[in-house]
Design a protein around this nucleic acid. Structure first.
Length: 875
RNA sequence: GGGAGCUUAGCUCAGCUGGUUCAGAGCACCUGCCUUACAAGCAGGGGGUCGAUGGUUCGAAUCCAUCAGUUCCCACCA
């Protein structure tokens, strides 16, 4: 069969993915094997694949495939997230582009549009994951708003309400005036903005004079209900007990005293606006002040804003500056930088706003979740995130779980006609409860369900349980088998949104950890270190990359520079390296395929040695790789295999056993080579699934069900240290000869002789055949003294000589040797110094001292050899 | 304002509880090669006073302190 000289991924990838699907290899059912479970971080249902997904899912696939090959029952559950606020925003925008306002629609109509949108765009991202090679159990695909998941969410809400962990109340919340909903504290991003600090004069009510307050938000003066001073501030002491007039409103408000006011800041006067600032709100509570809400939900001023009614808060800010100045009430304006909260979703400044919301009490939920992570029942990789986690968990605040949105799980609270409400999983149950609560006649239609829906994370926090239906059906076969899951692969930015809350839900609903390891990936950046973003246009399309470099190439590119928790500076050159590697493997296959195998040929001694060595080397690398996996150092694990394949297998092993031109290879060597090749493909398969499967099938005849995806990954044996160190020495000799060839311009095709001067008789000639073959040496001779007309080098304490035709520059050689001698002598002195230091000999561990003694002996031997060579050159 | 991390070759990073087998890897770079698997390749090679200073120690990239630079997280100072 003719094999092309370049590896062509496209058709091969398509073919094998389909094959794996046909064979149902990705599907898992509980059985007697050990389970290995990962639940996917569900991407937004209408999203498309970006580089972050690419990295994240590559890692998950590697872990899943490896577990599968280790004989575990591997189950990777895929799914998507309804992404309440993001999806609703998209639908609203789409409707707006068609001239439809959300407010003009009923809830039902809007949801119909949203579902249409979801069906149209949903699931694209899962199809894209298939291109990457993701071996998800597609039969288990879940959606956070499908029937079972929705039911789970509602059930949990009711349960937590019954447990009195969920409550409803008016609180100061983070209001997003664009999305028109409250958001949680975690959805607020604080950014530094360059603003102004306005010094505004408030006239005293009963006498002449002013109190000058400093504020960054002059538009909120309409909500002022007091001015506050610090009782210990001499600057403002004369104002105690007085009253001031709020500009424009003519409202008279008191000057109150509280040591909350920082005497160092501004003028010492603080305007108190309980409706629009969390601190002011607390002052308001303390002093029983009125709350004047001056904003509409969309951030414009309401009737309290008088002539500014209907204007946007930022427009008012500019206008009022002018108007205050005109009225002579603006003392000065200073540039000022402060931190302002922005909505994560819409990127508009958050408006602190009092409103009625639902909250979940977190303190009790947090405790077992803190313990689990601090005691390493759940391990974080890298573990530096433990600190971050603990800090947040120990200061956890109640979670605002209600959103003023329609796309999501509607809160199962039903309001009664004359006030009050009941919470129940269905309207029917709610009605049952209602008739028991009220003493007046009601019908089902009198119940009015809460309009709000739940925070998206209120469904995702149940994900590891709900995908196995463990909420609705807590004792089912799946949940009992797959839970707790093994590894979670996610980004650090959602450690609080998601990871922490899943851990809490896990303890609340299963009384157990929800996963054992959390692998935090880094952020994928471009090669200049910038975050990838649509606006910068620096985010490559993963699917296009796959087309260009092959899925295996891209997977490898993603993994090459990404230790856990580190940002990944992505460069297409990495994919290129991945593609080159694919090609290298491909060509190794081509070599093996063109061999003629003749089972009557006797095995060469060099081949025998090569096999012995590679066996040891393979096990050594495998041990290293497994160690990396245990520590979740996947890039290092990949690099270990990469070097094993490229350097050890291709550059050394294959070169050693390669039959000379036109000759056949013996059966023993051939079989061993195929076995090695197979083992290499097995350990590489989790990283590069497609090419390894293809080669698996090209390299040998296979039975119907003999696919690499389900092959057993090799277990390391103890690798033979002796053969490894002998071979390392051999490599040095070969290197030495190659260097001489390069320096002296002796082409490889011209065979050479090699003389060995080994005074100590310490070297092993077992690998001489290898040296001869790889360096095109016709004859290796052991000699007693330096041969004539040769050029030499020293490895250890053995001298090697290659005959050369050109004259040796003896002076230059002597110079080089002298340099070498000087270095070695210096080294010997430092070792001697150590060994003659009694404190070293006494306090250092015995093996360290022994090592030093060995170094001393080696250095001395080497010095002798160098000196002799200098002497002989001089003669 | 509080906390955490990072600073080792041009780039990205390894170097665990101190001991020239720790000064490394991959890529990039330079030189020579189209050697019959592979130029998406082969062979060879040059790069770092391990951020700075001080300390502990027989010995420090490795421990401690201070400083500088940098990144991230948390936070209601108008």
């Amino acid at each position: 069969m003719e094999i092309s000289s370049k590896y062509n991924p496209a058709t091969i990838e398509e073919k094998w993915y389909q094959h794996w699907l046909n064979k149902n290899y990705f599907h898992s059912e509980p059985d007697e094997r050990e389970p290995y479970t990962i639940v996917i971080p569900p991407p937004n249902v209408t999203g498309v694949l970006h580089m972050g997904h690419m990295l994240n899912n590559t890692i998950q696939d590697i872990l899943i495939r490896r577990a599968r090959m280790q004989g575990k029952n591997a189950c990777w559950v895929p799914g998507t997230d309804h992404a309440s606020i993001a999806t609703e925003a998209k639908v609203v925008a789409k409707l707006a582009s068609e001239g439809i306002q959300k407010n003009d629609l009923t809830r039902e109509d809007f949801l119909k549009h949203a579902w249409d949108w979801t069906h149209k765009h949903g699931g694209i991202i899962l199809e894209q994951l298939k291109k990457l090679g993701a071996s998800c159990d597609w039969q288990r695909t879940c959606f956070t708003m499908d029937e079972a998941r929705s039911k789970s969410v509602i059930k949990v809400f009711c349960d937590l309400y019954e447990k009195e962990k969920i409550y409803r109340g008016i609180r100061m919340v983070n209001w997003d005036p664009k999305a028109l909903t409250a958001v949680s504290d975690e959805e607020v991003i604080h950014k530094e903005v360059n603003g102004k600090l306005y010094y505004i004069k408030y006239k005293l009510a009963e006498e002449n004079g002013f109190a000058v307050i400093a504020t960054t938000r002059p538009e909120t003066i309409f909500g002022d209900v007091a001015v506050c001073i610090n009782p210990n501030d001499p600057k403002t002491a004369t104002f105690k007990g007085k009253k001031v007039i709020v500009p424009f409103t003519n409202r008279i408000v008191p000057i109150i005293e509280d040591d909350y006011v920082d005497v160092e800041f501004g003028t010492g006067f603080l305007k108190v606006t309980p409706a629009h600032d969390i601190n002011d709100y607390m002052l308001g509570e303390k002093y029983k002040l009125e709350v004047l809400d001056i904003f509409n939900d969309n951030g414009t001023l309401n009737a309290h804003g008088l002539q500014y009614e209907g204007m946007d808060r930022f427009v008012v800010r500019e206008q009022i500056e002018k108007d205050l100045a005109t009225a002579g009430l603006l003392e000065k304006v200073e540039p000022y930088t402060n931190k302002v909260g922005f909505s994560e979703r819409t990127d508009v400044p958050i408006e602190p706003k009092l409103s009625m919301q639902w909250f979940l009490k977190m303190k009790d939920l947090a405790q077992p979740a803190i313990d689990a992570v601090m005691n390493d029942i759940i391990k974080f990789h890298p573990n530096k995130f433990k600190n971050t986690y603990r800090h947040w968990m120990e200061n956890i605040k109640d979670w605002n779980i209600s959103r003023q949105l329609w796309w999501g799980h509607q809160i199962p609270a039903y309001y009664l006609p004359k006030g009050g409400f009941v919470v129940a999983e269905t309207k029917e149950e709610a009605f049952e409860k209602a008739i028991k609560t009220v003493d007046y006649p009601i019908t089902m239609d009198d119940l009015h369900q809460d309009e709000d829906c739940l925070d998206t994370w209120f469904s995702s926090w149940l994900w590891p349980i709900s995908v196995f239906d463990g909420i609705n059906n807590p004792d089912n076969k799946d949940i009992n088998y797959y839970y707790p899951t093994n590894d979670l692969i996610t980004a650090p930015e959602i450690i609080f949104f998601w990871v922490a809350r899943m851990i809490m839900a896990g303890y609340e609903y299963r009384n157990e950890h929800c996963f054992q390891n959390v692998y935090f990936t880094g952020i994928v950046r471009d090669k200049f270190g910038r975050k990838m973003s649509k606006s910068l246009g620096n985010s490559p399309d993963p699917i296009a990359l796959i087309k260009q470099y092959g899925a295996d190439g891209v997977r490898m590119g993603m993994l090459l520079t990404s230790p856990a928790g580190n940002d990944l500076p992505f460069d297409e050159a990495l994919c290129e390296q991945g593609r080159n590697f694919s090609n290298k493997i491909w060509n190794a296959l081509r070599l093996v395929k063109i061999w003629n195998v003749d089972r009557s040929v006797t095995q060469q001694e060099t081949s025998k040695k090569a096999i012995e060595w590679f066996e040891a080397r393979f096990d050594q690398a495998l041990i290293t790789m497994n160690d990396h996996f245990e520590k979740y150092r996947l890039s290092d694990a990949l690099m270990t295999v990469y070097k094993l394949v490229w350097d050890d297998f291709c550059s050394w092993y294959l070169e050693m056993i390669k039959a000379p031109m036109g000759q056949a290879i013996d059966g023993t060597t051939y079989d061993a080579t195929i076995r090695f090749f197979e083992n290499l493909m097995k350990i590489l398969h989790p990283f590069m699934p497609f090419i390894t499967e293809e080669i698996w099938h090209l390299i040998a005849e296979r039975d119907q069900n003999d696919d690499i995806i389900i092959a057993s990954i090799p277990e390391p044996k103890n690798s033979d240290e002796t053969v490894l160190s002998k071979f390392d020495f051999t490599k040095e000799v070969i290197n030495g000869i190659r260097k001489v060839r390069a320096d002296k311009n002796i082409p490889f095709r011209d065979s050479i002789e090699l003389f060995v001067l080994d005074k100590s008789n310490s070297i092993d000639d077992a690998f001489d055949g290898v040296i001869a073959k790889l360096c095109n040496v016709s004859n290796i001779q052991y000699v007693e003294k330096t041969p004539e007309n040769t050029f030499g080098f020293i490895i250890g304490a053995t001298e090697y000589f290659v005959p050369i035709t050109e004259n040796v520059d003896i002076e230059a050689e002597i110079e080089k040797l002298k340099e070498e001698l000087k270095y070695t002598q210096g080294f010997l002195i430092s070792v001697d110094k150590k060994l003659s230091n009694e404190r070293f000999v006494n306090s250092a561990p015995a093996d360290v001292v022994d090592k030093e003694r060995k170094k001393k002996a080696d250095a001395e031997a080497r010095i002798t050899v160098i000196e002799q060579q200098i002497k002989s050159l001089k003669n």
